[in-house]
Amino acid sequence: MKHTEHRPLEPLLDLQAYVDGELSEDRRRQIEAALPSDVDARELVQGLRQLGTLIRAHEPVATVPVSREFYWSQIRRQIEADSQAERPQAPAASAALGWLRWLIPAMGVAAVAVVVATNQSPREMTLAGGGDVTVVDVTSTVFRSESDGVTVHWIQ
């Protein structure tokens, strides 16, 4: 205390920078040249070095205050949550969903069209392919192809 309390701050910071290896080569040489004749500076340098050595050698330690399993489970849960949130939709799935967005209304329109067409014509008619269309009621239409052995139900 007695050595440094009246000294300006700048030279003290220079001495500290010298201890920390933060000075230019020229400045380092200047300080080394001045130290033998400056008792106060020498004591400050020695004190700073000892303090640094002391606290680095006795770095405070601490133990996680919860069990390993609990600590990890919270981390894992967060990792999984982040992974879910950031997972991009697969391109193929997106494409399929895109098609579905168009396909479902289109199917509805087609179904309505079939019902309207069959309601405006005889309730039974023969198709070119040899099948027939039977209107069961206003909201249900069945297409059956005898040659292909296929029956399609349109429900409106």
């Binding site: 205390m1 440094t4 701050l9 004190g47 000892q50 303090l51 002391l54 770095e59």
Partner: peptide, 28 residues
Amino acid sequence: SGGVERQLPAPETNPTAGLEQDELRRRI
């Protein structure tokens, strides 16, 4: 700005001599 630290002590040689290692760690 240097107004206070010049009133504080310079680091003293071996200020914690005699303290146990764990005690020293705790004090630091």
